[in-house]
Amino acid sequence: MKTSWLETKQLEDRIFRKDTGADALMMDVKLYLSEDLRQKLAAQKDAYGYIQAYGRKKLKTEIASVHHKLFHEEKHNNFRKRIRKIFSANNKI
């Protein structure tokens, strides 16, 4: 099991170009010899893209919650009025 997470770390080092010297050479050889490892590398690259998308989705949920508070809580009434005024029919473009 230990080997498994170390391999994941080694693949990460390759993706972010953190491997050097003998480690980099060893990874070159392993990747050349193993189709399975090449597929893992490709999937791990994709994983970072998914993690970023997940992070953005969660962050947008937090931001939407702030927007909701500003437009629904009594204590932000003045702010809300200020924004509504900008978009009111009387406020000509």
Partner: peptide, 17 residues
């Protein structure tokens, strides 16, 4: 790293990109 491996394996299983 174990979590990363889990996500990576799910991607491979489903051949998702």
């Amino acid at each position: 790293y174990k979590c990363l491996e889990k996500v990576r394996n799910k991607i491979r299983e489903k051949s998702l990109h």
